[in-house]
Simulated scan of single mutants.
Amino acid sequence: MNRTPLPALVTVLRTLGTYGNRLSPADATPEQLDVVHQAIEEARRLLAAARRPTSTGCVDHPAGPVDPTDGLCLLCRGRRHRAQLQAAAVDPALGDVARTLAEHGETEAVRRHGPRAVTRAQAAVGRSTRHTGGR
């Protein structure tokens, strides 16, 4: 279950609840019905999003939030982004290594830059030097 859309779903359901008290068959307008219809569709969309599994395949955050753009772990994405910024600040060459790590994984970074540069980039940003399997 994805808990990210739940606050928005609660808001939409509360809005729908207010229409239950205000709407009567005698004085319902097409505009009111359109608003209710849109709210119901939004509630359905949010409910479907909440029911989707949040498994990102992330070892560190198996139930973490999912990045909607690519389905990867949002927490790791933030960590990788901070690592890139910190590595670039410490040594511009390490920034290139950190970018390769974030975009292509450890195996590709070692292939492109060598194990020593990868270890230095990881140490510079305080990231673990254990093998992460291409994340």
Rank of each mutant, 00 (worst) to 15 (best):
L23Q: 10
G134Q: 09
E103G: 13
G17K: 03
R3Y: 04
A50I: 07
I40L: 12
R44L: 01
V10S: 11
L46M: 07
G95I: 01
L33K: 09
S55W: 15
A39W: 12
N21M: 14
G133S: 01
R44N: 05
G105Q: 02
R52W: 10
R111T: 09
T119V: 01
A98D: 06
G105C: 03
P115G: 13
L75K: 13
A121F: 00
E41L: 11
T100A: 13
A93V: 07
R127A: 14
L46Q: 02
A89N: 01
A98L: 05
N21Q: 15
A88N: 14
L33I: 02
P115C: 02
G64L: 05
A83S: 06
T29V: 03
Q86K: 13
T69Y: 04
G126N: 00
A88S: 15
P25H: 08
L16C: 02
R120Y: 05
P62G: 02
A121M: 00
G95Q: 03
L94V: 14
C76G: 08
A39S: 07
L101T: 13
V97T: 01
R130I: 04
D34C: 12
Q84N: 13
V90P: 04
A63V: 14
A93S: 05
Y19T: 13
E103R: 15
T11Q: 15
S24Y: 12
A109R: 03
V12F: 00
V110K: 03
T56I: 02
R80T: 10
L16R: 04
T129I: 08
A123R: 02
T100H: 08
T4F: 13
G57Q: 06
D70C: 14
T29Y: 07
L13P: 03
A123I: 05
